[in-house]
Amino acid sequence: MAEKDLSADVALAVRKWQKKRGALIMVLHEIQGRLGYVPREIALELSKQMNVPLARIYEVLTFYNFFELEPPAKYVISGCMGTACYLKGTPQIMQEFSRLLGIEVGQTTPDGRFSLTTVRCVGCCGQAPVVLINGEVHSKVSPQDVPHLLAQCKD
């Protein structure tokens, strides 16, 4: 969905879903799926094309955790908050990430490179505590490993 033909792309998604129930949500899903977030310009364009107030679109976007309003960071770091990982120290690990990156969980660094999130149990409790970086599992992590993990996220 390139910026230049934004309205055409939105129009396409709108046409595909408009006759169906819950069209707004489906269109937003499609945009989220393709871009990894729903940019403000697209929400505005959608508001025009579907004749839905922007206020309503943002009600939907912020109601469901699924939707992102900011572009995804290059490296998404997710600490597992399953019981085993939690007890074995995910909070301390996340604190160390926070300290080194200068952001809280749920935020993205201003340069758009890192974001910190948490996930529910990823099902590798034997490896606890577990951290995911762009989906890749790192097991038995300790706070001391954090600088090393960050160093691996090059460019």
């Binding site: 107030p53 922007l54 206020a55 309503r56 943002y58 009600e59 109601f63």
Partner: peptide, 9 residues
């Protein structure tokens, strides 16, 4: 006017 809305839940 739709200037105001609830966000999040």
């Amino acid at each position: 006017v739709w200037a105001l809305s609830f966000l999040e839940r």
